[in-house]
Structure formats: C-alpha cells, structure tokens
C-alpha cells in the first residue's frame, strides 16, 4: 500500500511537471482586443487548474494498468475496498471546492469582465449579416463596405449586429470574442482594440461567421485590419467618408453582448 502510494505520488508529480511544460506553450491566437486578454487569463487559469487533476487520474490509471496486471485469469480476489469510509467524503469535498473556485474565478469574475460595456465608445460599426456576406457600415464616418473590416487601434469599438435572414455569428478569432447575429433584433459586442495587425499576416484576423447558415457558411468571412488612427482616417477618406471619430459616452445603452 505505502509503496503503491509512493510510486503514484512520484508519477503524479512528474506528470504535473510535464503538464506545466506543455501549458507553457501559447496555443491561443495572437490577441488584438482587451477582452481577448481577459479570455486569455481565464484560459491560462483553467489550464493550470486542469494539470494536477488530469495528472492525478492519469497517474493512478497508468500505475494500476502496469502494476496490477495479471497474466491470465486472476486466481484470487483483490482486497475488498468498498469505499464505505472517509475517502469518498474527502473526494466529494475536494471536487466541490475545486468546482466552487472555477465558478468564482474565472467564471463569475470573468463574465463581468467580458460582458462589460464601454464607458466611452469611440467608433460604432454596424455589421449586417446576410447569406453569405457581411455588410460593414460606419454610420459616424458615413462609409459602407463589403470588402474588409478596418478598425483604429486603442479605441473602444461597438459592433451593432443584425441578421436579415437566418442566424449568423460574429467571430474574430484574433479578438477571442464571439456573439450571434439574430434575425429580428440588434445584438452588440463592445471591446477595445489593443494591437495593429491584418489578415495578410495572421489568418485569425478575420470576421468569420461561426453559426451554421447554409451553403456558403464556410466562406462567409471578411479580412480584418486594425490600424493606427491616422491610417484609419486615410482609409475613410479614400472611400469618400468623413474622417475623424465621434466618441459617445454610454448612457444606459445595452452593451457587452446582450440584445434588445
């Protein structure tokens, strides 16, 4: 018993080490939004919590598989552990505590972070989803385009999203954010751009429909560019719009990712 526990403990620690090394690899896309950074923190926290749990189960499973295997049919019975003792109670309390931690952080705390509304909105972009393309409008700049979504960096953005036919979903992988487009209502996504970048350098910089919408769902996508403010103004001017941002302070507008 003591020997078994000792070996399993060592194996557990080794696997935790392996897990932590693996957890060191950055698997998320390069992140270009402030809320994307919150998603990142949530991801990293969950990975760190998952490592010891997974390592424990794999350690016991692997050790049992290797150490207790019998050649042929076992002649005798194993020890009669029925579990009518403290072990399930302790397990219950531990898993309950772990689950309570996950609920609070990154769960409830994270919801507040990623659903937060902008205090000030620098730029409003209307996204109209229709089979199988995106219509991008900048009401304050008086620009409409079907070709790309361009945003100034370090600005608070509000997407106002509508769908004209079926469900669609607004997802920019590099923002790590997603919200559905639902016929019959306007939905919102509010965040701040934090880093310049473009689809040419990073395929995660694209506006991708993420809710199955029929035949060309796969290709219902648009390149995304996050650029310096001056470059943005130039782009607006090139399209014949009115350069310059018109920030608005939030009154009691719905934000984050709710709808009317």
């Amino acid at each position: 018993m003591k020997r078994d526990l000792g070996i399993v403990s060592v194996l557990w620690l080794v696997l935790i080490g392996v897990g932590l090394v693996l957890a060191g690899f950055d698997v998320l896309p390069e992140t270009h939004s402030d809320k994307g950074a919150d998603v990142r923190h949530a991801w990293e926290t969950l990975v760190l919590m998952a490592v010891p749990v997974m390592a424990f189960v794999i350690a016991v499973l692997t050790y049992s598989f290797l150490a207790y295997r019998r050649r042929g049919e076992p002649a005798e019975d194993g020890p009669p552990h029925t579990g009518r003792n403290w072990v399930p109670k302790v397990w219950f309390v531990l898993t309950g505590a772990l689950s309570a931690v996950v609920i609070v952080y990154p769960g409830l705390v994270g919801i507040d972070a990623v659903m937060k509304k902008n205090d000030t909105t620098d730029i409003v972009v209307k996204l109209q989803a229709t089979k199988w393309r995106w219509i991008v409008q900048y009401p304050d700049q008086n620009v409409t385009t079907l070709k790309e979504l361009v945003l100034p960096v370090d600005k608070h953005v509000r997407f106002e999203i509508q769908a004209s036919d079926v469900l669609h979903s607004v997802w920019v992988p590099a923002f790590l954010l997603k919200v559905d487009a639902v016929p019959g209502k306007t939905t919102y996504l509010e965040f701040k751009t934090t880093k310049t970048g473009s689809f040419e350098d990073n395929e995660a910089m694209r506006l991708q429909c993420a809710e199955l919408c029929g035949r060309d769902h796969a290709t219902m996508q648009l390149p995304v560019r996050v650029v310096a403010a001056t470059e943005f103004d130039q782009w607006v001017a090139d399209l014949g719009g009115e350069p310059g941002l018109k920030p608005s302070v939030a009154k009691s507008k719905p934000g984050g990712h709710s709808g009317h």
Binding site: M1, V57, V60, S64, Y68, P74, D77, G78, P88
Partner: peptide, 19 residues
Amino acid sequence: TGLIFLAALGTIWQGKLWL
C-alpha cells in the same frame, strides 16, 4: 462526474486486473 472517476480509480486500485 468526479465521483464516477473516484469509483473507477478506487475499484482498480490494488486489484487483480484481468486485461
């Protein structure tokens, strides 16, 4: 669900595994 894992691991622990 965690209790199911406990049952699985507790059952094979020090058993005579017929693979």
